[in-house]
Write a protein that binds this DNA or RNA. Sequence first.
DNA 1: GGCTCTCGGGG
DNA 2: GTGTACGAGAGCC
Length: 880
Amino acid sequence: MELQIIDSDYIVLNNKPIVRLFCKNINGETICVFYDKFLPYFYLHGDETKYEETIKEINKKYPNLKIEIVERLMPIGFQPPVKVLKITGDNPARTPELREFVKVFGTVYEADILFKYRFMSDFDLKGMGWINVEGKFTKTNTVKCKAFDAEEIKPLEILKNAPLRYMALDIECLPAEQRIPTPEKDMIIAVSFAFSPAYKGKDTLVLIAQLARINNDAIACESEKAMLEKMKEIIDDYDPDIICGHNINGFDIPFLLKRLEILSIPQDLGRSEKFAFSRKLQRSYMPSVSGRVIVDTFEIFKRDPWVKFKRYDLSTISRELLGMEKIELKGSYVDTMREMWRTKNVIDLIEYSKRDAVLALKLVVDKSLLDKFFEISKICGLLLQDALGGQSQRHEFKLLKEFYKRKFIMPCKPTSVSDRIKKHGLKGALVLEPQVGFHEWVVCLDFTSMYPSLIRANNICTTTFLTNGENVDHIVSPYGSKFVKPSVFKGVLPDVVDEYLNARVLVKKQAKIETDPENKRILKAKNLALKDLSNSLYGYTGYVRSRLYVVDIANTITAFGRDTITYTKKLIEENFPVKVIYADTDSVFIKSDVKSLEESEKLGIEISSFVSSKLTGLDLKFEKIFKTFLIEAKKRYAGWVFEREGTGWTDRIEMKGIETVRRDWCSLVSDTMLDVLNIILKEKDINKASKYVRQIVGDLAKGKMPLEKLTIVKGVTKAIDAYDGVQPHVELAKKMMQRDKTKSLVGERLGYVIVKGNQLLSKRAEDPDFVKQNGLEVDPEYYVYNQLLPPLERMFEVCGITPSELLEGVKQKSLLDILNGQKQLPPDKTVLKSFELAVCNNCNWSFRRPSLTGNCPKCSSPLYFSAAGSIGRTVDFNKK
DNA sequence: GGCTCTCGGGG
DNA sequence: GTGTACGAGAGCC
């Protein structure tokens, strides 16, 4: 029988463990596989000459333990095999106790591996992986699905996934006050579901905790307890593989479990008799529902480094990705819910609750959100639930498996991490000082998978690390650390990296020719998974909680990286008539006097293949062309990018570090920033850009700007008295609560504008509606000097326009003067050129930036602009 | 620039 | 469940 592993755990029967694998077959049936021939074990490394004694000592206290002397390889430092004790126990739950007891005899290894993972590692089974099982179906009341007693379990390689059942879940509560509800005090009044595929012909279902009048999509229950029992019935009946929701880990699941406890309802939400639980650690909760996977869309999106949102609430993400939003309530949540509940008019409640479930489900199913995580599971071996978590566990388990295959033993996780944090000292990547300013025709090249390539090329691993200058063939890194050559021993890390990089090349190739859309999707997801895994692997040795923490190795990798980029710059500038104007980690930005896309591309390719040929194991690639490029500082730039697409080019504006959208800015700022950048980059017309800014300033001063564009939104997160500083939105909340004593604004997001007046700034925050009704005026000075100018000034400054020039030197005067006495900018010299120097024609005085007038500030003669590059000649840009 | 502090999502 | 895990952005020198 062929099955795909969804989840795993174990139970203890007669003091012996039985591993359970919750699986799906290709038809979507749930089958739980039992395996009872595997026992927990770990290693002890102590004084090898005293092992016989040690065994006796341990057996005195634990007579039934099987203890063998075996040969294994140590995880850190290249060295010959050592003898260790392999201690095999019976009940995994008692391993910690055993571990503590034997610690006095030496160092323990692998004594903190979860039993299900010990089993999966040794049998080479993977989360979301397929297996072939032999055995027979059996009867049991410990699981709610079909049960199968396995004699043999073997891994299989199958690309496709079994059809899964997805359920989104969302609860609504009735808080007694204006605050986020707590399960100890507040009840659940509604539970909504969305299903994929449909459940009994329904895509959604809402349960209500009172016998109110309802519509077709809902079921009215006589109490909260009856509703939650009904909810369990539906979960068991639908039997979802995936339960998803937005912030379901941080809210719904823990809330639900606590309510079940309070109402004395068993918490068996999973596929077995085991109770679901959700453990809190620091900020986040870890859910565990046996046989199922809990997917929190909030956590997934927040953790995704490739897609950024302004906010991570369900409404924002759904709007961006699905073009759909949450239903907006007319009043505050508490007031609305209490009113609906009191009047038993729950139709709106049903709609509201249903929408949340529908959105969460759509984000997961319609956006194929889990594809990448399925592949991460299949590659590193973690169960899907754990693959949704952080990077470190992924590498940890993959490396455990690879260590096991090669007879290396893995250290336990560090118990205390503070000493590591104290003297951490990991030096990062190299970022060259950029040539600040405006440039044209910039070619961008970057190393594909630089860190993984360096690991592979130099055999960097804890297992190849030479701790003392042993007499074996080795390389010495720029950091000074030594690693044995692959001919002596090929490291585990390089092997894993090699597997990832090769797989990626293959997967990309396959994806191109694959015609089946599902397979194509999976291959694309696999490519992303491999990219994430290979790029983050290097960080594992420098991660303070790592089992393989060796800062020297992490430092070696970044040192290699810094050397590589420095050498690349040198190679390029010594062999080509170009200048490297910026470089960051694994990319270089090159300026030449080439002036077309095709020529730039040709040059880029020529340079990159030259560099690649000089650096073995590394591949520098032509990436893109910036037709125009504005760089303010390290990691802060914007450019008009052209990328090759087939026979043509695609273009877009790319921004790094220059934020045009920020939560605490009003939309006027974001809009203006974007418009100005577009003018500068696409039209190169700084005059037009500054005129544009002055026009906005003018509109502001005349009060022509719509209030919506000036509204700044901030959340009132805590009780008003709990704030000690004076903040505009908090002051406004106070005022508004004064005006309407019934209102509480705690927990709400408050929009405000700053109005004219001579009070303290924060006291002048006002409700936009109140401003409209009472004909108040906004304070243009505030918007110009506090909102608009700060982000714009730097952009203009690097283009050679000082803040005072931007507003025609009237910054000191009142805004009215700007309007009345607006001078014209000089007609020419306002089109941006990329230059390195402005030199006076008359007195030869040179300036890093030209003045806006185009005349020398010293002697008023016209300036000329020159570009001095590494090419050793000066190009005259003023050939009129 | 580097460091510490805050707050997020949910109802 | 052989467990024990934040991280980006803002504010401050």
